[in-house]
Write a protein that binds this DNA or RNA. Structure first.
Lengths: 347, 347
DNA sequence: TGCTACCGTGACAACGGTGTCAGGCGGCCC
DNA sequence: GGGCCGCCTGACACCGTTGTCACGGTAGCA
């Protein structure tokens, strides 16, 4: 093998409109017209230009174009998620991509890992690239960075968690109603000791779900039992541990409301380990693949993530195309999907 | 509600370097120097510039910058996947993002849906945006589009499926060895009638896996039984149907090798419906979440997707930074994870 | 025939920045 | 005191493209 370093590696400089114009024997502007499908170019010239484009392998430079163009659009949006690899967010991503595609836009997707510092960095990187708009799952309590972009003129749509100041559009789920329906469902099947397992209450969605849980309990004439409530669960292992702890109580719960995906899985592991999968009821918040392949199938409160992504993107492109309507706050309703685990009666 | 249309919605035009220069009382070039952290600006002026930047909310315009800059880099890469929402690809996406972040790059992720036409469109869109490089899961047999970009000077790294011409870098999995080990594993547990369920053989990965299956059978002194081989399975439902069909044979298989994610799930459904989950063995290709939560746990051949993504991104940034080494073809080894379903003995 | 009304086309400036280079200035050495 | 050096700084051209406008030419009309 011979190393080619030092060879004429200078690729012949990527062709520009000027080159195309020279080859086609027309002016720069005419090439621009053909490339942009502007009217008013004779067929003859158009053909010559197209041939020259082919010949040179010319690629239009959108950066230069949008620099000069009056609307200044880059055909690019930013999507700020917690983690692009998380199924919830990747589904959202896809839904947004589908809409973006229809609008000729490409999507910068990025993961904040719920870290405000990282969110700031990404916001900065996106702003430098002059995205036409932003869809964001805010990383922390403080939305200053996002709202700053909004004020500077970049449309922003909040997803999953609302902008509490209300100046920007948002698309969220009625977490409270979802949790409420889950707990009522368990009550309807006879449960009176229903445990709550969830994330930190500082997270808006977690808090809302907890409020829904409490609301349903009280509505059903039950009272809140502190030993059956566990917040601050961050991962599967912690959920599993918490569930095991509760199952060891003198009066263990006959049902669990697992307020989030990973929490549900941890809970299931605990039940499986204790051979209680068919004895103790579970309803989880957020669906997950294979939830219907387990034995019993897992009853969940499911969000329509595709709908959320689509709505958010449609709102965003509406703004990008100039809508000046008042801020919109779309709230979608989650639905309960009974699959078995939530229909187990107390023993 | 009063509509604000017609109001002075003209945001005060986003500030440019010129504006900053005017406010700071320096030349354009000095602002440029400060923004780019070039050496040789007195502290006094630097401070004035920074203040002006703050005051005006100035955001650097990377497009204009890279237009003029000599290296012409946009700090942007393209990631062409089959579907950003598919867990395999979204994990890959995340691994790439992590590396890109270290290099100050943002990632355009896009879904081809394995459609060559769509791939062409996306390639065009990415090229117009002057991405510094591309990581692609090729959509079809014909890699002309991707290779064209490569020739035009944009580094391209193939992932999951190799570029058979070998001119571009690639990162793939040894699918054949993985399938071989799965089938040998089943043989080692006493199986002699092992069924194959897989996707279209035109897909390189599917073909490789089939070859591995066949290889292992022959190596074990078994022969290929046509009625135990089913190609062209496109989704879960088809996999389920195929498995049910085979289970109804006079001499049904005692084990299944499911050559892909969705196929595995379909197979599991069939076994579950037939109450054979604990009787018939299964080994799947590709791991999936919750594979260990099922009863029995599902034995799989697992790829290290994070590793693949990382390697691909590292290769790409090597090229972007000028590496002129010969094309590299990294092949990773999948590992077999025994969890129960693959260790069931024939009855 | 003379005038206007278009039509296709190109010259030129401009978008927001960066590379190049020359000039001003202070300090140091002879 | 003159010359040289190095450090800052700004003027200017230019990156690849599009908006504007003026040009020459032809058709339509009175």
């Amino acid at each position: 093998m011979t190393t080619v370093s030092g060879g004429p590696r200078t690729s012949p400089r990527t062709a520009t409109m000027r080159d195309v114009a020279a080859v086609a024997g027309v002016s720069l502007k005419t090439v621009s017209r053909v490339v942009n499908r502007e009217a008013g170019v004779s067929e003859d010239l158009e053909e010559r230009v197209i041939d020259a484009v082919q010949l040179l392998g010319y690629r239009h430079n959108l950066a230069a174009s949008s620099l000069r163009r009056t609307d200044g659009k880059t055909g690019t949006i930013g999507l700020l998620l917690e983690d692009v690899a998380n199924p919830y967010f990747s589904t959202l991503h896809r839904a947004v991509e589908n809409v973006a595609r229809r609008h000729g836009s490409l999507t910068f997707a990025a993961s904040s890992d719920a870290d405000p510092q990282r969110e700031r960095e990404l916001l900065h990187a996106l702003a430098s690239r002059k995205v036409d708009g932003l869809i964001a799952v805010p990383a922390g309590q403080d939305h200053a960075g996002l709202l700053h972009e909004h004020r500077l003129g970049t449309p922003v749509v909040f997803v999953d968690r609302p902008d509490l100041s209300g100046v920007a559009d948002s698309v969220t789920v009625d977490n409270r109603a979802g949790a409420d329906s889950a707990v009522r469902h368990l009550q309807a099947h006879g449960h009176r000791r229903i445990a709550y397992l969830g994330d930190r209450r500082e997270i808006w969605t977690a808090d809302q779900r907890y409020l829904g849980y409490r609301e349903a309990l009280l509505a059903g004439g039950l009272s809140l039992v502190p030993e059956l409530v566990q917040h601050d669960i961050l991962n599967t292992a912690e959920a599993e541990a918490a569930a095991i702890r509760m199952l060891a109580l003198d009066q263990p719960p006959s049902a669990f409301f697992a307020a989030q995906n990973l929490v549900t899985i941890g809970t299931l592991r605990a039940l499986q380990a204790a051979q209680l999968s068919r004895t103790v009821a579970v309803v989880g918040f957020d669906d997950f693949t294979l939830a219907n392949l387990l034995e019993p199938g897992i009853t969940v409160v499911s969000q329509d993530v595709n709908l959320i992504g689509r709505k958010a993107a449609e709102l965003l492109f509406g703004r990008i195309e100039g809508s000046a309507a008042a801020p919109q706050h779309i709230v979608t309703r989650p639905t309960l999907i009974p699959r078995g685990s939530g229909e187990i009666a107390p023993s």
